[in-house]
Design a protein around this nucleic acid. Structure first.
Length: 900
DNA sequence: GCAAGGTC
């Protein structure tokens, strides 16, 4: 008989596996650590008689840390942390576990590793191996692979032991080292830079405030800030839509205009009046079809968190705590899983059978098991499998335990109902779509009747709305009961909810199922964000300032790409395509140069903080002189004057005297040597008077073609100032020096934004959208003269239909409109020759998305700042800029024109 | 005093 030391990742697994292998014929004794017991029993592995000793660790046994001499914050330059020596060691609170392992390993011949079968588990396996090998060089090491704590699975695993996977462990080593070096260097840098310079009122103990940076927490913060900016910069647009309803003996049908909304009032009125004057509706289509609503996929951690937040408003962090309790007590399976498909070997019927006795959903479970009822359906797969754990499902029946809180009850019910829904047939509905035509305009209505609810019977959290509409026949004609032209206003998307945030993180690969809620909580703990009663997140000034600072540097350190790239590299390491050292070297090199760059541009962070926070006395607070000459009345607060100020290191800015209540500020080009407010007043900037400033620039810092002396205006009209800010930056002399004007249009000059389409890069006089319409129109006019084809839509290219207006003001006037009802091109024929009036009205679906805020924010939507947008047609929209005035040097939320 | 990842 040999002695075999078995080690699991957590005490509960050690207990379960021991129970399964020994068929509960085991002995328990204490280990050095009070949580990690040792189970003993006899077993036979491939015919070899074994005395099994089964213990556990609690997650990672070791921690990666810098060598002692680099641990103090002031011990070294944060940039040195990219090369500083690091080492793995067992922290003090894990020493007991280490001692148990050492003692037991000394008397064992084999070590069997039962760590979770994911990358982290593999890495922990190597930590355990290191400890055990150190005291027993001869020990034989084997890995057990299992994906669920199911009898057969466990017995199979122990009879088919394999070797540990070094690549998996390497990937985690690389991840740990990169996270540590990036996190520590940026955290030290930004904390030491900013904490003492500003009065950050959010924290009680300001001295202890840590402005942490992490490759997961910052992108998460980025999502919240990005959405917040989008909302801030949203400009409501009025739109018009035609609504049509028809009441008959059978009921009411409310038809939607297939065009959705039009933003052009005249177009809408013309079309509306035509409908009113020929109001007879003709049914052009009656489509009847069966529609299915499918049950959700099996439950993964993220989905559990999202649904608990949506259905019960539980925070993800609290959900995981409650889920952990239920798991520890044996009621649900392991709650940290990415898997959303069941293994074919799982006995799903047995899980349902257990629930038959429940007072509320027991009868549903019985129906599921009755083959005659036809309710059963094998669950579909969500396509994710972490190979370590099954989807979350009930593992033990409970009618509710007395010790449970309301949230325990709710979460258990969610897990059970979700499981029962997964193995159920989809809901079936009968859908009828009716389309009508009124004066060439199309309208449609959808009616739905639910034929069988199936899974919806048990999954009370979801519903399927439906409405009954009267019966219509093809060709039937009727007069609408009402036909109205209604206006509405576009709305910004809502703030991100916890479920939205989890979805963003999941999509971008930020964090793991076990840590996502931690990152969200960290943002709250660090005073970067706040959460309202509807579980929606807003950034605090601190959170917004940090993101703004990095964004103004032009870095995407707050975007998810960095993490995604790292994740790809880890994947490559884990499959052996790249070596750990190769990935580490390259990644750390890149990050170090990024860090050094960020430090060079630290003025951007300071400027961003300046927008929100008052300077603190501790760092000599008056970096910027308090008093200066008045330039104008502040357009933001409209109460105080804005004055020209100069900081100690010579940089100029125009700031509001209402500071800190009003934080309006205009930073002037870094190349300014001298600046004096004159008595001359700008003719164009409002509200006036805006006094002009006499500038003298440093010759060496301005590109050829610019004059050293310049009488300029900070009101927004001055192209020279704008270009110099773009070329030289603001404030920082070091940044400006040596920065050679490039020849690319984007950095060499950035003309003011076009007032028509709000894009930078051209003036309104040469706006491409205007030009394309007028060019198109002109060529079209020529074509008409030549007797060639008619007008084409300038969005989709479809030949337009020539129609005649029949309205009071425009009777007889001809216009072209795009026949595609999803496209709203419209132009008066008599405007073709002068190019006036051609207008592409935004597509209705863009508006709908914007209104609903769905998918909004991050990929589409229009006017937000700091986001790369894609329009409905797939074309990129304008780069980031202030939506109010088009100025790229600030955001709309601090726009001087706000409120004017 | 820093990260993110395990888990208690």
């Amino acid at each position: 008989m040999i002695n075999v030391l078995n080690v699991a990742e957590k005490p509960s697994v050690a207990k379960s596996v021991s129970g399964i292998l020994s068929r509960n014929q085991l002995r328990v004794r204490e280990g050095r650590s009070r949580y990690n017991k040792i189970f003993e029993f006899n077993y036979s592995i491939n015919g070899q008689a074994c005395h099994m000793l089964f213990t556990s660790v609690t997650g990672h046994l070791m921690e990666l840390e810098f060598e002692e001499s680099f641990r103090k914050w002031h011990s070294c330059d944060p940039a040195d942390l990219y090369l500083a020596p690091v080492r793995k060691s067992v922290p003090e609170d894990k020493k007991d576990i280490k001692r148990t392992l050492e003692e037991e390993a000394r008397r064992c011949q084999w070590l069997v590793l039962w760590l979770d079968c994911d990358r982290e588990g593999e890495n922990i396996a190597f930590e355990v191996m290191e400890v055990c090998r150190a005291v027993n060089r001869q020990i034989t090491i084997r890995r057990a692979r299992f994906s669920a704590l199911i009898d057969r699975e466990i017995h199979e695993a122990v009879q088919n032991l394999v070797a540990p996977n070094q690549w998996f462990a390497d990937a985690v080593d690389a991840r740990q080292e990169i996270d540590l070096r990036i996190g520590a260097s940026f955290t030290r840098f930004q904390t030491m830079l900013l904490r003492d310079k500003f009065i950050i009122d959010s924290a009680q103990e300001e001295r202890n405030l840590v402005l942490s940076y992490g490759p997961c927490q910052f992108p998460t913060l980025g999502f919240i800030v990005e959405r917040y900016w989008e909302i801030q910069s949203h400009e409501p647009e009025e739109y018009w839509t035609i609504n049509c309803s028809h009441t008959s003996d059978e009921g009411v049908a409310t038809f939607n205009w297939v065009r959705g909304h039009l933003f052009d009032y005249n177009s809408a009125v013309v079309l509306y009046e035509m409908c009113v004057q020929e109001p007879t509706a003709t049914v052009t289509k009656v489509l009847q079809r069966e529609k299915l609503k499918y049950p959700p996929y099996p439950l993964s951690t993220i989905e559990l968190e999202k649904r608990a937040s949506r259905y019960f408003r539980m925070s993800s962090e609290h959900t995981m705590k409650v889920a952990e309790d239920l798991y520890q007590a044996g009621f649900i399976s392991y709650p940290r899983t990415e898997t959303d498909c069941f293994s074919s070997r799982t006995d799903l019927h047995a899980i349902v059978r257990e629930q038959q006795q429940h007072l509320v959903w027991g009868s549903y479970a019985q129906r599921l098991l009755d083959p005659g009822a036809g309710l059963w359906r094998n669950p579909s797969s969500g396509g994710h499998d972490d190979k370590a754990h099954p989807p979350i499902h009930p593992t033990k029946f409970s009618a509710g335990e007395s010790a449970w809180s309301q949230d325990h009850h709710r979460l258990y019910e969610l897990v059970v109902r979700h499981f029962l829904a997964c193995v159920s047939q989809p809901a079936v509905g009968a859908e009828t779509i009716v389309e009508i035509d009124i004066a060439g305009e199309q309208f449609s209505v959808t009616g739905r009747v639910i034929l069988s609810k199936n899974y919806l019977d048990v999954y009370r959290f979801e519903s399927w709305g439906g409405s009954i509409i009267p019966t219509y026949a093809f060709g039937q004609q009727f007069t609408p009961t009402s036909l109205t032209l209604d206006s509405g206003v576009t709305r910004p998307p809502p703030l991100l909810s916890e479920a939205d945030l989890l979805a963003c993180m999941d999509k971008a690969g930020i964090g793991t199922d076990a840590t996502m809620h931690d990152h969200i909580k960290k943002l709250l703990d660090r005073f970067y964000v706040t959460k309202d009663a509807n579980t929606r997140f807003s950034p605090t000034s601190l959170g917004e300032a940090l993101i703004m600072g990095y964004d103004n540097m032009g870095y995407e350190l707050w975007k998810p790409y960095l993490r995604s790239m790292m994740e790809c590299d880890m994947k490559e390491v884990s499959v052996g395509n790249k070596s750990k050292d190769e990935v580490l070297t390259r990644c750390l090199q890149q990050m170090k140069s990024c860090f050094l760059d960020a430090r060079t541009n630290k003025i951007k962070l300071l400027e961003a903080m300046e927008v929100f926070f008052q300077r603190s006395d501790r760092s000599g607070g008056d970096d910027v002189h308090a008093v200066g000459e008045t330039v104008r009345l502040c357009g933001l607060c409209q109460e105080s004057n804005m004055v020209l100020k100069r900081s100690r290191d010579g940089n100029f800015m125009v700031g509001c005297l209402g500071f800190p209540q009003c934080r309006n500020a205009v930073w002037l080009p870094g190349a300014v040597l001298e600046a004096t407010v004159t008595n001359n007043v700008c003719n164009s900037c409002t509200p006036g008077p805006v006094y002009l400033i006499q500038f003298k620039f440093r010759q060496i810092e301005i590109p050829p073609g610019f004059s050293v002396n310049h009488l300029g205006c900070i009101g927004g009209c001055d192209e020279t100032i704008r270009q110099l800010i773009d070329i030289c930056g603001t404030g920082s002399r070091t940044q400006a020096r040596g920065r050679v004007p490039s020849t690319t249009p984007s950095s060499n000059s950035r003309p003011s934004a076009c007032t028509y389409c709000h894009q930078t890069g051209h003036a309104s006089a040469s706006c491409p959208s205007q030009l394309s319409a007028s060019r198109l129109s002109r060529s079209q006019a020529r074509n008409q003269q030549d007797g060639e084809s008619s007008m084409s839509c300038n969005t989709c290219g479809t030949p337009c239909v020539l129609r005649t207006a029949n309205t009071e003001n425009n009777r007889g006037r001809k216009f072209y409109s795009c026949p595609s009802q999803s496209c709203n091109f419209f132009i008066w024929e008599d405007n073709l020759n002068n190019g006036i009036g051609a207008r592409n009205v935004p597509r209705a679906d863009t508006v709908n998305r914007r209104r609903a805020g769905r998918g909004g924010g991050l990929q589409n939507g229009g006017h937000a700042t700091g986001v790369t947008f894609v329009s409905a047609t797939g074309d990129p929209l304008p780069e980031r800029r202030c939506y109010k005035c088009g100025d790229p040097s600030h955001f709309a939320n601090v726009c001087p024109h706000r409120g004017s």
